[in-house]
Design a protein around this nucleic acid. Sequence first.
DNA 1: AGCGCTACTGCAAACGAGTGCAATATCGGC
DNA 2: GCCGATATTGCACTCGTTTGCAGTAGCGCT
Lengths: 339, 339
Amino acid sequence: MPAPTLRDVAEAAGVHAATASRALNPATRGLVNADTARRVMKVAEQLGYRPNPIARGLKTAKSGTVGIVLPDLTNPLFPPIVRGIEEVLEPAGYSGLIVNTDNDPGREQWQIEHLRSRQVEGLIVATARVEHPLMEQLHREGVVMVMVNRRPEGVDVPSITPDDASGVEQAVRHLADLGHTRIAHVAGPANTSTGVTRARAFRTVVRDLGLAEDPDLITTTDSWSEEAGAEGLRRLLDAGTEFSAIFAGNDLIALGCYDVFRERDIACPTELSVVGFNDMPFLDKLRPPLTTIAIPHLQIGAEAGRLLLDSIADPSRPARSVLLPLSLVVRGSTAPPAH
Amino acid sequence: MPAPTLRDVAEAAGVHAATASRALNPATRGLVNADTARRVMKVAEQLGYRPNPIARGLKTAKSGTVGIVLPDLTNPLFPPIVRGIEEVLEPAGYSGLIVNTDNDPGREQWQIEHLRSRQVEGLIVATARVEHPLMEQLHREGVVMVMVNRRPEGVDVPSITPDDASGVEQAVRHLADLGHTRIAHVAGPANTSTGVTRARAFRTVVRDLGLAEDPDLITTTDSWSEEAGAEGLRRLLDAGTEFSAIFAGNDLIALGCYDVFRERDIACPTELSVVGFNDMPFLDKLRPPLTTIAIPHLQIGAEAGRLLLDSIADPSRPARSVLLPLSLVVRGSTAPPAH
DNA sequence: AGCGCTACTGCAAACGAGTGCAATATCGGC
DNA sequence: GCCGATATTGCACTCGTTTGCAGTAGCGCT
């Protein structure tokens, strides 16, 4: 038997569909007689009536879905964020549609168009590229959205970002406290906002702490990957610059450094200390366990969800931006310098 | 300006909405004059017309969405499967709605109900519990679905499962080839289908290879987690049974063993070898890198997507089940026994 | 010229729910 | 016992698209 419709309920309760509709909707329930409302609700319950969100969406122009735009779900960074998002979306009756862009602008545009044609009511965008003409355009077109992990410059869009600067400071200060003075930085890609933010923060912290400001101590990768990280460290090593510690742009890059350690028989942390960024899962299982900066993924997601819900409820609300604190997790990959 | 509707296109092209509809739908395009069709399509293009899937879904009773039911997206096992699924769903115009059950039957039921009320056309279910009264019921109600990672017993539902038995065989044989004769098994929960399948397979392989068949060599955990794995190994160790190698129910459990190694100062692989199952990401970064059984996650997902699409197209099609081959990945956690 | 046929196109009714407006009942007050 | 106000409820239309049916035009044929 097909799912019962509003009419079925109405008929079974001996009322008109319109009345049933009003009785079932808490917002309009006051318009119908309390007894009738109760009766309708009971019948609906008995029949197992579930309003058809498609039909409802057609009339109300609300789909009850939001789009979640990620570079790649496979990156362990994102699943916890997604769960955080859904934790707040679900009680509000919203569902998230997840799409992966693979950091390809064409694919991103296509996916977002696809989401829009699916009538999503809002977008949570977690892609990290710095240029965002598409975002600006969407914003102008009145698409409500919130950005995660990136503070939009110029555009008046709510965002929720980890406080990268403070994270970088904690990492570098930890190294400095251990006695390191020449600290290298294997930075993430220059076309990602986190990449440049962290590199910039690194430079200012190094200056503030009075450490070595050698530009040769910084190298930039072209992707957030292990291979790229390994190459970065190799470049640094091959250039002959001296340093006793590495601040990696993220954990993946730090893992790339681990590969080079093995490759060149470098002892970590005795010869070279390294600290990562993100606190991916299972970092504590490495040898040595990686010291890193922990990001409150779940809260990021939850906060993003809340911001989006707010924006949907009142699109004209001024953009609020949240900066989430990070924390240093000291494990085994950092130690005082050798000599 | 609001998104252009079919009527807008029709009007601009000087035809009736019905004609425009037919012209835009490849399946019915043959019914309209080729010139008219071309004209309509051009106008649609110019106006940037996007059919509203909500309205379409209302009429056709097809939502273009399928539900993906997972225990927990955060488990690194699942994202690649999801990507595999979407790889085949996307070109077919379908989107996936992902929900997490956290292995809680109540939550699972609630989530599935939610998905159904959202009019999903099918379900891909990747939860691993053995009892499945809910699945049976859904199947009876005509919900089309495919199961991943679990072969439904009794129920006539398509499924796609990794060939656990062959994986277990490869793992144990590898250990036996190295010279181990007393191999322990830290098995996954008895209420999960993979847990019991692998334990059963372990027992038969042990017998087939003529290894020690001591029931004390097998312990069962109550969840697929590191803590549970650690507890399992501790139980084994504390019981005083002798063994030189461990076959872990999955990688997480193997990681739990690593924790115990550190805790009790056991050298791996010299004192104790261990092999995992699943080939989670970053296992090669561990010390020692974990020997494990690799699962073709992406293919699993893709195959599941295909099966579901097939079932949607023809619900009466007999259930097909696919068994995907696994492969052994030898890394550093296995070696010949000490003495 | 008239017939039937095909090829096209328009009409209108759905799909399931929401909602402004009108209609009906109910009640209090005099 | 009548008037107006108020509380309920029903009617009918709408959202954007699809689709069975009917209508129209044009064509070939005799």
